[in-house]
Design a binder for these strands. Structure first.
Lengths: 270, 270
DNA sequence: ACCGCCGGTCGACAATGTCGAACGCTGATT
DNA sequence: AATCAGCGTTCGACATTGTCGACCGGCGGT
């Protein structure tokens, strides 16, 4: 009688029954292509994942058939495929957090006059699931689907402050430096998170991008579980007062919006 | 010595070496979830795909591990996962058509005063890969990632007119009816496509949505191969003249933009 | 014309994914 | 209350299926 751990003798040992190996590999290839921001060859992919070239090719051939990757006719290299775009936006349709928050986000943008974003944790980052442009302004690029760092954004700090698992995982990884203001030491970050927990909201000024600041508050669901964050972001001189503190009016707008969304999601107390 | 056709004794027989079965099934599940616009249970999925329930569960478990699907804690049903959103938008970054067209799309929106969309064929539909809102107007929903019908949109007609394979495939399927004006017979459609080929652009008025009209022109790449379409869409009374014809000025704006993008992509003649 | 690198193919092996029955649970029905 | 049906999930045995590594042919730099 074989135990699962013995049957799946790979590097990662799980208590759950065996995952389908080839699908995990396919997913790894897709993530690799997404990260590498460009075309990759079969050899590079096989090396990065420790696969035989033939194996990698077989998976890529299949991913190509289903439209998840495309192949550059000239160089033979692979890149992400169009089918993923549709799947990605289909996800937005079923995302409950987004659909509940969407109306409140519009209102928050109108009241605050700033760009509003809603984020959820994904894989040690903040995934932007909704984005409302700053009202009546120039061209802005939509960053729905973008991954933001946890430790250098207001939304990320909120998520970290209320998710100890996430915070623990972050403690084990390097904190990237984006600007001079970025919190790069675990100590500074954990101190900031304590402040966030006490205040019930987070802010950040030029910790991620120079000249930009943001304010965010947690969105909770049943049982007070924090499932996401909503916040405003914009030029630091509009988000913060002359003394460098976050504009109190903006803070209360954001907190009101977060409470409203949480209530919609079924949270009983906030 | 086994031939490939014998080795892969499934319903679809290919001349190419065997695709990875489990990955194809995983992709089918994801497409099913995207189509079904909601949560699906293991049983439903297994039935729809003709799989054993246990098999479907194993695949879903793996997709869950990699974040491609999420599971509703209460009902146990599955839906698309957040990781797909990031992959989808990562695709936009590497999509050459989009990155080349993006500047021209802005210019076209400014000149025409209408919403601009860029589309590429995907799986018998038109995938919207870029969308510029109508200048200075109310809230509009971004439909990047949406799939539009081929036969009822100007962009779709353009793609059909210059891709005989696509047109042949469409001939074999039912033409959905959206409005009274929708071309539903193969004969009417193929006549329209002939006109498109002669004119070099396509238009449509209330064939897809009542009160909406659109104009589009083909984007070609190396060797004149049509790889996408760019077009404007908006209220029929703005897109068309009083006599019901597409506004000539808009047509030339669209055609100019399409030529410009094609030139950027390396097309030698247009 | 050489060499090295690339993407792609091939055949053999056994590791691996699949199947179908069985489990425990929840919620509706009787 | 007891029953039942349906759900998601687990399990073990089987052979199908994915993987490996060597090999092929073409391209580009040397």
């Amino acid at each position: 009688m074989f135990d699962i751990v013995e049957r799946r003798s790979d590097s990662y040992r799980q208590l759950v029954p065996g995952p389908v190996q080839s699908i995990e590999r396919a997913a790894a290839i897709l993530r690799l292509l997404a990260r590498g921001s460009g075309r990759l060859g079969v050899g590079e992919i096989a090396n990065s994942l420790g696969l035989a070239k033939g194996t990698a090719h077989g998976i890529l051939r299949t991913l190509h058939r289903v439209g998840f990757v495309e192949q550059d006719g000239a160089t033979g290299k692979y890149q992400l495929g169009a089918a993923l775009l549709h799947l990605g936006t289909s996800y937005l349709d079923v995302n409950e957090l987004r659909s509940r928050a969407i109306n409140w986000a519009d209102a928050l943008a109108a009241r605050s006059g700033e760009a509003v974003r809603i984020g959820a944790p994904l894989d040690g980052k903040v995934l932007v699931v909704h984005h409302v442009f700053r009202p009546d302004d120039t061209l802005q690029t939509l960053d729905v689907g973008t991954l933001l760092p946890l430790h250098a954004t207001a939304m990320g700090k909120v998520l970290l402050a209320y998710d100890t698992d996430l915070a623990a995982a972050t403690n084990r990884t390097e904190l990237d430096t984006f600007t001079r203001r970025t919190l790069t030491t675990p100590k500074a970050l954990s101190r900031a998170l304590t402040t966030v927990r006490e205040a019930g909201w987070a802010s950040e000024a030029e910790e991620s991008v120079r000249g930009q600041a943001s304010i965010a508050a947690p969105i909770s669901s049943y049982g007070g579980l924090v499932v996401g964050a909503i916040g405003v972001s914009g030029a630091v001189e509009r988000i913060c007062t002359a003394s460098g503190e976050p504009e109190p009016a903006l803070v209360s707008y954001v907190r009101d919006a977060a409470r409203a969304v949480s209530r919609d999601l079924g949270a009983t107390r906030w």
